[in-house]
């Protein structure tokens, strides 16, 4: 069975690119349009990895990570931030919230897949 990845981003085109790249690499992808949608979908089924944007309307990426880390079944699931932001301060906040890595947009599909493989095989 394919590993499942939850991709959370308010940009439809970005979700499409993520989905395309990860599906081509053999993963199943569940898309969510913002932090709250991501949290709702994560509650419905446990995924193997979460990939989230930071700046989204309503619940942002950091809030999503904090909420996920409070859930028992998400305490050890790898969570990656994929965002346009690259400042050290926000990265530190991501790390403190429980993120396992930080990817700065735009992403290269091959490099993204390489990182995902490293984390979940």
């Amino acid at each position: 069975m394919n590993k499942k990845i939850l991709a959370v981003d308010d940009s439809g085109s970005l979700r499409q690119m993520l989905s395309f790249s990860l599906k081509a690499a053999g993963y199943d992808v569940i898309e969510a349009v913002d932090g709250q949608d991501g949290l709702d979908k994560a509650r419905m089924q446990t995924v193997d990895l979460v990939l989230t944007d930071q700046n989204m309307p309503g619940m942002d990426g950091l809030e999503l990570i904090k909420a996920l880390r409070k859930m028992k079944n998400y305490q050890n699931v790898p969570i990656l931030m994929l965002t346009t932001e690259s400042g050290d301060d926000i990265k530190a906040m991501g790390r403190a919230a429980g993120a396992n890595g930080w990817l700065v947009k735009p992403f290269d599909p091959a490099r993204l897949t390489e990182v995902v493989r490293k984390l979940i095989g």
Partner: peptide, 16 residues
């Protein structure tokens, strides 16, 4: 500003 990119090269990756 949340966007500081000046190029379309792929961004950095950092694993914690």
């Amino acid at each position: 500003s949340t966007v500081n990119q000046r190029h379309m090269n792929s961004g950095d990756i950092e694993l914690f």
